[in-house]
Nucleic acid binder design. Structure first.
Lengths: 193, 193
DNA sequence: GTCTATACCAGGATAGAC
DNA sequence: GTCTATCCTGGTATAGAC
């Protein structure tokens, strides 16, 4: 049972591997535990991904593509609402103590090869770029004060989102990251309440 | 040479271990590489720290104490300047790609024991608490708009600082975290420039 | 495509000599 | 306090049967 025709094992492996990296880091990912979780033997995974590097690379590429797809699907009319929705994506992708996969890779930066690093660098650059565009639009719409420097605030938002996933692991009663972004957006509201 | 009377080895081990964790994570810390770096054999380190857990615990405790000492030593008259100076502490403690030690531990959360977790949780709570007090003072002094919610902004600042250390590893030309904090403080300035 | 079996290596840890 | 030597575990990886 469990492993029938077996054509779907490859994608199952990738799904589990992504969760494992987000939970325990790249170093915490092992073929053994992965195999056990899937009810398979380690060599079966080696058949699909000969080296661990290949698995990490494939998982990272898929994660970046899927996340980006969800970002471009955001269609709120208000720029600041788009940013709030964006923060929710982080919550969704990182439930119960998981990190953003790219954040987890960055944490294990010294143990991943260059191909993976390039993907992660591009991911962060893309996120900052998207956020910058939203901040720019928010200023144009009067939702943020025009004293705000778009690129700087975008970087701060991204750092805060990635960092909050890290910090909340140590929180006794962790909350979502959305309220944190609210704080920053309220901060930049043009009309002093 | 190198290992003379040997009474200082214990502290040398702790210093190197801290750097290793900040660079490669708790999982990336090994007695072997540590020993090699210090020109000693691995068992010599076991003599001072029987188990790896003990070493991690000792290093974390020292890091937290030393960081806290540097925080309370901040004496700028302006609350926002104190926060800017605080951001510089992060830069100092995390040069060339290192993370805040507690951030690194949080990234390897699943592989550290409860004693260490408590230290890290306390560390983050202390930092958020200190930041909250500065934000409160900044509002009282008119350096930040009173629409700002102190606890929320403090959390965001801490998350942004921890996260920026992570994200900048993937940056092609990483910069200090200080400018990022400037962006957030400018954001909360009461008078729209 | 998946399995069993196995080689191989690195890291953590201990015993006992000096 | 530091060493040599050794054990054990767990993880990566390969060969070859089914």
């Amino acid at each position: 049972m469990a492993r029938p025709t077996g054509r779907e094992l490859k994608s199952e492996v990738m799904t589990e591997a992504s969760l494992a990296i987000q939970r325990r880091g790249v170093g915490g990912l092992s073929y053994g535990s992965l195999a056990e979780r899937l009810g398979v033997r380690a060599p079966s995974i080696h058949h699909h991904f000969r080296r661990k590097d290949e698995l990490v690379l494939a998982v990272t590429a898929t994660y970046c593509a899927e996340f980006q797809a969800r970002v471009v699907a955001i269609d709120e009319p208000s720029p600041t609402d788009r940013i709030r929705r964006y923060a929710e994506l982080f919550d969704e992708v990182a439930t119960d103590g998981r990190l953003c996969l790219c954040g987890a890779v960055a944490a294990d930066w010294s143990s991943v090869d260059d191909e993976v690093r390039v993907l992660v660098s591009t991911f962060f650059a893309d996120q900052a770029e998207w956020l910058r565009a939203q901040v720019l639009a928010a200023i144009a719409d009067g939702e943020l004060a025009d004293a705000v420097e778009p690129a700087r605030l975008a970087d701060a938002l991204l750092a805060a989102l990635e960092g909050s996933l890290l910090v909340r692991r140590a929180d006794v009663e962790p909350s979502g990251v959305a309220r944190l972004v609210d704080a920053l957006l309220d901060l930049g509201a043009p009309a002093p309440a």
